[in-house]
């Protein structure tokens, strides 16, 4: 028995898929960079307070 192949996405769907992947990746990178910056700033402030 051959496994059933999922239907190939159309050109529009493939473009939409790429757009969403890029959007999610950029959002995750943005959040991670922002968090790293925030934690760095918190550390500096806490060190100054002590």
């Amino acid at each position: 028995m051959m496994p059933e192949n999922p239907p190939r996405p159309t050109e529009t769907e493939a473009a939409e898929l790429r757009r969403r992947r890029r959007g999610l990746n950029l959002a995750i990178i943005g959040v991670l960079v922002a968090l790293a910056g925030l934690f760095y700033a918190i550390t500096i402030v806490k060190m100054m307070q002590h």
Binding site: P9, E13, E16, L17, R20, R21, G23, L24, L26, A27
Partner: peptide
């Protein structure tokens, strides 16, 4: 259909 969600939905 695509398995990848839009960031705006999150």
């Amino acid at each position: 259909a695509l398995g990848v969600t839009d960031v705006r939905d999150w």
